[in-house]
Amino acid sequence: MNAWEKVNMARGADRPTSQFYISAIFDSFVELHGDRNFRDDQAIIGGIGLLNGRAVTIIAQEKGINLQEKSLRNFGAVHPEGYRKSLRLMKQAEKFGRPIVCFVDTQGAYCGVGAEERGQGEAIARNLAEMMQLKVPVISIILGEGGSGGALAIAVANKVFMLENAVYSILSPEGFASILWKDSKRAEEAAEAMKITASDLFELGIIDEILPEPKGGAQNASSEMAERIKEKLENELNHLSRKSEDWLQKHRYKRFRKF
């Protein structure tokens, strides 16, 4: 598959989204809503679940699966209050010593009037700075689309994993082509040039590991994919949970300092 085909797969209507993985991987999930300031942004699902008995805070971008739900969830495009909800739950996790697992799947932070009025830039910036200092393990997994700062705002993690056919980019290929070549129709060409696939990003050191997908993509055997993610999370959390707060902070800082 070339990069553009992966973009299309990552955006595909049949690609399993965060809510599927949450229910398949975690037991007793309790969803926690709201940023305590403005509203509950449903483009982000947040809450606590058990991973084989271990309490974990989960932050997940969710695009929705049918038209009605997609509209409710703003197609996974997060508003500032979504990032603020994430940060609230992450600080809560830190208070109670829970590891944090983030699922990334967004075209990007929402570009709208309300988002600007309520400080989209500030909300993302705050997450980047605060996540860097968290005293608990943080793991982020790019499930589908990792769209720019809107994805990074929940991906300042100790470990960043990526599904084999997911993409993670500085901007959508359409936007990139439009800015650099003044022609959004050259998106396919842009996708190739931008190095946005899991294998390209692994080579650049942007991600730590690629999670292989079942033949033909995660949608063909979604339970198998969920099982693979679960196993990976268990292994990593077993490892990271033994580390000190100081080690976790320094490890995360170094991970991003190298770029």
Partner: peptide, 19 residues
Amino acid sequence: MQEGMVSLMQMAKVSGALA
């Protein structure tokens, strides 16, 4: 844009130093 994801990572890097 010309440095792709490496540019995006700078956001986390600089913010981390400020933190």
